[in-house]
Simulated scan of single mutants.
Amino acid sequence: MEDSLNVERFLSVLKRNIASIITSMLLVGILAALVTYFVMTPKYEAETQMLVSSPGDSVVVDFENIETNLQLIHTYRDIMLSKTILEDVITNLDLDMTVQELSRQITVTNQDQSQVLSITVVDESAERAVEISNEVAVVFQERIVEIMYVDNISIYAPASVGPDMLPVSPQPLMNIVLGLVAGLVLGMALAFSRAYFDKSVKNEGDVQKVLGLPVVGSIAKIED
């Protein structure tokens, strides 16, 4: 019985405040759209892929060399994001940023058991993202010979600017949906907060609940 009354109260609060809840949802959704389109700066992503191959010209698959290369990939990732490599990239491209700032824009990954290293760069400029991604690959390919005395790195797929290169962030649809959901939650929270703190008596049921006495009669409001 008590659960039934709680559900009825819940639905009653929603019904009384449905207009304010919808208004809150729309306002926050519109705010999210405005921030997305007019405040947030679009960012583009470029990817250069490098292949860690076995030394020599043999076309025979050497599984021992492949396993060695897979183990080296973790070391290669650390070197690629090192100060030595990134300082050269900044100098070569005349970038107005620090090593730490550039490092935050770069992600180096590889799939499990794959000899392909992916250099992903996110930047506000599509052209600069492509330049940085390719330059990191070129500098690393040159410097790894000096650092580790190995020459088994090749640029497999350089990044390029294409007509279909769209911003990876912000995501307007996702932001607007999140704004609508946030507005809905905010509107419901305000509605239930008002209902919880509202101690005024509005009907016979409120009188009975406050006084603990049965209602034996009521006087209708007389219109002028």
Rank of each mutant, 00 (worst) to 15 (best):
R143L: 13
V122E: 15
I147R: 03
Q141C: 00
V122A: 07
T120F: 01
N152C: 06
N134F: 09
R128L: 14
D151F: 01
I132F: 06
V122N: 14
E124A: 12
V150A: 03
N134D: 10
V150S: 02
D123S: 14
V122D: 02
I132Q: 06
A137G: 15
E142H: 14
V145G: 08
E131L: 13
S118G: 09
E124R: 13
D151L: 07
E124H: 11
E142A: 11
D123N: 15
V130S: 01
A126I: 08
V122I: 15
Q141L: 00
A126Y: 04
Y149G: 10
V150M: 05
D151K: 01
Q141A: 05
E127P: 00
S118F: 03
A137F: 07
I147F: 08
E131D: 15
L117N: 02
V121S: 12
A129K: 07
A137R: 08
V150P: 03
F140W: 01
I119L: 14
E135N: 13
N152H: 02
R128V: 13
M148C: 00
I144L: 10
V138R: 11
I144Y: 07
A137Y: 07
I119T: 02
V121D: 14
R143S: 01
A137L: 03
V121M: 06
T120M: 02
A129L: 05
D123T: 10
I147G: 05
A129M: 13
V136W: 09
V139W: 04
E142V: 07
T120G: 03
N134T: 08
V130F: 04
V145P: 04
S118D: 09
R143T: 05
L117C: 04
T120A: 10
E142W: 02
S133I: 08
I119S: 01
D123K: 01
F140K: 05
V138N: 14
E131P: 05
A137T: 11
E127W: 05
A137V: 07
R143A: 06
R143E: 15
M148F: 14
E131R: 11
V138A: 12
V136R: 03
V139S: 09
I119C: 00
E135I: 07
Q141N: 09
M148K: 06
E146L: 08
S133R: 00
V121R: 09
V138P: 00
E124P: 04
V150G: 00
E135G: 08
I147Y: 09
Y149D: 14
E146T: 12
N152E: 01
S133K: 06
E127A: 15
R128Y: 05
I132K: 03
S125P: 10
Y149A: 14
E135Y: 06
T120V: 15
T120I: 14
D123I: 09
E124M: 13
